[in-house]
Amino acid sequence: MELFVQQLVNGLTLGGVYALIALGYTLIYGVLQLLNFAHGEVYMVGAFTGFFVMVGLGGPGKPIVPVWLMIVAMFLAAMVVSGLLGVGIERFAYRPLRESTRIAPLISALGVSLFLQNAVLLLFGSRVRSYDTPRYWSGAGPQVAGVQVNPVRILVLVLAIILMVGLTRLVEKTAFGRGMRAVAYDRDAAVMMGIDVNKVIVLVFFVASALAGAAGVMVGLVFFNVNNYMGFLAGLKGFTAAVVGGIGSIPGAMLGGLLIGLIESFTTAYVSANFASVLSFLVLILVMLLKPRGLLGTRAIVKV
């Protein structure tokens, strides 16, 4: 029972992070029908930004400001830097390809991903950086069903939920959200309705990338290690989550993320740590074959 609860917590935390990355993929796919392979690198840059802010503020050994302030600063900095990076990528690597074929932005995204990974390697070296959270935030957390739950994980989970709720409100209640949904539904009609499509796309990229940046800091806080290749793997998982949940669907991305996180932690514990990845992929292939549009994806009727 203890193992189950522990794995549940692990799975939810992991799932929350994947969900944030998946949300980014889904938002961008929604407005541009583009699978942004470079999203993982944006997340990685966010993680690095948080690390450098932490070091700049004296951490992890001797923070010069209260710990909570340092963490807030890390999040804000990461979200802003990642957001701006995402906007930059859209402006220079995707916008010129708006009128091109479907595959061109995809290849460009691959190029951006490769470039960013190695640019970070060039600029910051190959050493793995560690957030080393226990050094400035130790102490056991509350007991849940007999299991000690780490407070950092609780923070991360709560923050992820807040961000997701915030995003849902943004999309459903605000004018920007309406514009975003309009562009996702039919870009040409949105233009005719007087919506500034470019502005909407830029804002979407900013929000999606900021979420990824936040996810980067969360991963640093919970799992500690940050290096230039982390974006690739996380991006793959986040992308998987978005697709399984139904790409273009926001609740789908959240569901997909949580699902993948839970599958991973439970297969590691109960089946075999060795085969966790293989089984995850197998499950996903089966889901895709049975429900090609993803779990919550809509059966879109395409007019030919």
Partner: peptide
């Protein structure tokens, strides 16, 4: 000053840049 010293990294950077430029200039 820098890139020629790290051919392994430069190679990847060039491939990435090639893909981006190629798509923009001549997809």
């Amino acid at each position: 000053v820098r890139l020629a010293d790290v051919p392994s990294i430069t190679r990847q950077l060039l491939i990435g840049a090639l893909l981006i430029v190629l798509m923009i200039v001549r997809p």
